[in-house]
């Protein structure tokens, strides 16, 4: 693995493996995530994506290989909002700031600023999570992560339980945040279209044991991608033999295979 420069922090995984008892869930994972880029890990359920993310987040002890996290601050968003039911939305957003020792007034001001960008007004901020709609709760969860100004954001199927409108809104907010300041994002998802819409690189994982099967680069800015482009690229990915094998799909139809390169995707 290349030497990590001081100016460009990165996340590097080399030969990472993991086993629960005798069952190997991850083996030989190599991955490189530079600053300011969005990388997506896609794969079928049970391929070890979540385990991999937990290893990166330090929620599981590393068994095999090496993880070098050059980022100073990381934050997480999970599939469920995971808000504290006994704290107001505002205090939930400020939770990570409190953990860092930011004084009450300052952390509330920062949380309020972040919340306002997400369309959460003072009424919503004063309410407990169970008084908020599912969509509001997801916004609070994303705000709780972003208010920490992380330079590495880990998303664990963060958007997969949301309706299309809410998904689109949270994508916009994520990309807007990412445009304001460089933030690396490692997102795991089983939704290829979501990966293709947001990510600069898509790592496709195959199960048993979880490993990287192949990966693709998309060099244009995610915010600029049109729906048509996203559909075409998703279709292109779905025509790829390795991707199909990873998800356990039948071999691609031999009739007109879409060339992924023609719509801006590069196999690495």
């Amino acid at each position: 693995m290349a030497h990590i420069g001081v100016t460009a922090p990165a996340l590097e995984l080399a030969g990472v493996g993991h086993a629960y008892g005798a069952r190997t869930v991850l083996s030989g994972i190599d991955l490189h995530l530079p600053a300011g880029r969005i990388h997506a890990l896609v794969g079928p359920s049970g391929c070890g994506k979540t385990t991999l993310l937990h290893l990166v987040a330090g929620l599981l002890p590393l068994q095999d290989g090496a993880i070098r996290n050059g980022f100073a601050r990381s934050a997480c968003m999970f599939q469920q909002p995971r808000l504290l039911p006994w704290k107001s939305a505002l205090d939930n957003i400020a939770l990570g700031l409190k953990a860092r020792g930011v004084p009450r007034a300052a952390r509330h001001a920062q949380a309020r600023d972040q919340a306002r960008r997400f369309g959460l007004d003072d009424t919503a901020l004063g309410q407990y999570p169970q008084q908020l709609s599912g969509g509001m709760q997801s916004r609070v969860a994303l705000a709780r992560a972003l208010v920490l100004a992380p330079d590495l954001l880990l998303l664990d199927e963060a958007f997969s339980a949301l309706d299309v409108g809410l998904k689109a809104e949270l994508y916009r907010q994520l990309l807007a945040e990412q445009a304001r300041r460089p933030m690396a994002v490692l997102m795991i998802t089983h939704d290829l279209m979501e990966a293709v819409r947001l990510a600069h690189a898509v790592w496709v994982m195959a199960p048993e044991p979880g490993r990287i099967a192949t990966h693709f680069r998309f060099d244009d800015a995610p915010a600029q991608r049109s729906d048509a482009q996203v559909y075409a690229r998703t279709a292109g990915l779905l025509d790829d033999a390795t991707v199909r094998a990873s998800f356990g799909l039948d071999a691609p139809a031999p009739a007109a295979p879409l060339a992924l390169a023609a719509v801006g995707g590069l196999r690495c």
Binding site: A75, R82, L84, K87, L95, G96, K98, A99
Partner: peptide
């Protein structure tokens, strides 16, 4: 357990874990 994991991911120090996570529950 999901809240416990969240507290770990957000690096809550022990005292905050006691007062913000465990005690209210």
């Amino acid at each position: 357990g999901q809240l416990r994991e969240m507290a770990q991911a957000f690096a809550l120090p022990p005292l905050q874990r006691l007062f913000d996570l465990y005690l209210p529950h």
